[in-house]
């Protein structure tokens, strides 16, 4: 994957300076790169190897014991691990596509607006900027059965609403709703792509008598599809680490149960918001089964790496020549 093309203009002052200059240049590169080289080694390379090592141990930060494959064996048959994987899978397969589609729809709409386009754009984008913790707290309240304003409004209108974050069947849809509300990042990337479609293409199509749907289908979609794919893949990678919203929603909805003296199983209600990273956190930093947490981390690494490679490939097909 690292085939250097080096196609463009070579450094202009190559030969004359000789070996010393080359060494000087090499040192210069090293000097500029040094923060990252150190950082990569210390904060990525080393811990990754250490994760492999610790996965064969039982370690609670006090006592370290080599236990061979015990942690790996535990993984098979660990219902909580399975449940958390399914929850994360749910989010990946439903929330990600929904966000991309909704983002595309919003972008398409914005592209069509003449009057007030700027204002609408800002409004659509704004929720994305709300800190995730705050957004989640607000959502749990707004949708809170019995007391939340939305629940109240729906009641007045006679529309029955689910219990959202208090119902195991509806908590993940609630999170997806939150994800749709904060669709700004996806939307902006797609808006850029939609606006980048050459106008002549539309005009030509219109002259040929193509309706709005046909224009969208045959002109917009093909042009923006690489960006769509990009948004989808990065969305998957982001969702694999989905933690904050799920954890906060569970905590806030459980409310008073999360007090000193009570021990709450994570993923309220009924483990339905227990995402995989949250389970990893729970095993590592609540149960202090550090070794087992490392097994979970390696699993996450494998899956995330798969999608990262996909992304890098996509990069590649986009990128040739210069730089990347």
């Amino acid at each position: 994957m690292a085939a250097v093309t080096g196609a463009s203009a070579a450094a202009p002052r190559g030969r004359t300076a000789g070996a010393r200059a080359r060494r000087h240049r090499r040192l210069r590169v090293l000097a500029f790169l040094s923060p990252w080289l150190i950082g990569f080694t210390l904060f990525f390379g080393y811990p990754l190897l250490a994760t492999v090592y610790f996965s064969f141990t039982r370690y609670d930060l006090f006592n370290l014991e080599y236990v061979g494959l015990t942690n790996y064996r535990y993984l098979f048959g660990d219902q909580d691990a399975r449940r958390s994987m399914l929850n994360t899978l749910w989010l990946v397969t439903l929330m990600v596509p929904l966000r991309v589609l909704f983002g595309l729809g919003a972008a398409q709409l914005l592209a069509h607006l003449k009057r007030g386009g700027g204002l609408f754009r800002s409004i659509f984008y704004l929720p994305y900027l709300v800190p995730p913790v705050s957004a989640t707290v607000a959502f749990v309240f707004v949708l809170n059965p019995g007391t939340g304003p939305v629940d109240h409004l729906a009641d007045l209108a006679g529309i029955p609403l689910p219990d959202w974050f208090n119902d195991p069947d509806w908590s993940k849809p609630g999170l997806a709703l939150l994800g749709l509300w904060a669709v700004g990042d996806v939307m902006i990337i797609l808006l850029a792509a939609v606006l980048d479609v050459p106008r002549q293409l539309y005009e030509a199509a219109e002259i040929d008598g193509a309706g709005p749907w046909q224009r969208f289908r045959h002109i917009t979609l093909p042009t923006v599809s690489p960006v769509l794919a990009f948004a989808a893949v990065t969305g998957v990678i982001q969702t694999l680490q989905y933690f904050t919203q799920a954890m906060v929603a569970g905590k806030v909805a459980a409310g008073q149960s999360d007090q000193p003296g009570t021990q709450l199983a994570p993923g309220y209600p009924g483990g339905s918001t227990l995402t995989f990273p949250q389970y990893l956190y729970d095993e590592g930093f609540r149960q202090f089964n550090m070794g087992y947490a490392c097994v979970l981390a390696l699993l996450l690494f494998a899956v995330a790496m798969l999608f990262t490679l996909l992304l890098l490939r996509q990069f590649h097909s986009f990128a040739d020549g210069e730089a990347s």
């Binding site: 039982r58 609670d60 014991e65 015990t70 535990y74 048959g77 660990d78 089964n289 087992y292």
Partner: peptide, 8 residues
């Protein structure tokens, strides 16, 4: 019991 075993 399995969780107990994991925790040693």
């Amino acid at each position: 019991d399995k969780a107990l075993e994991l925790a040693g």
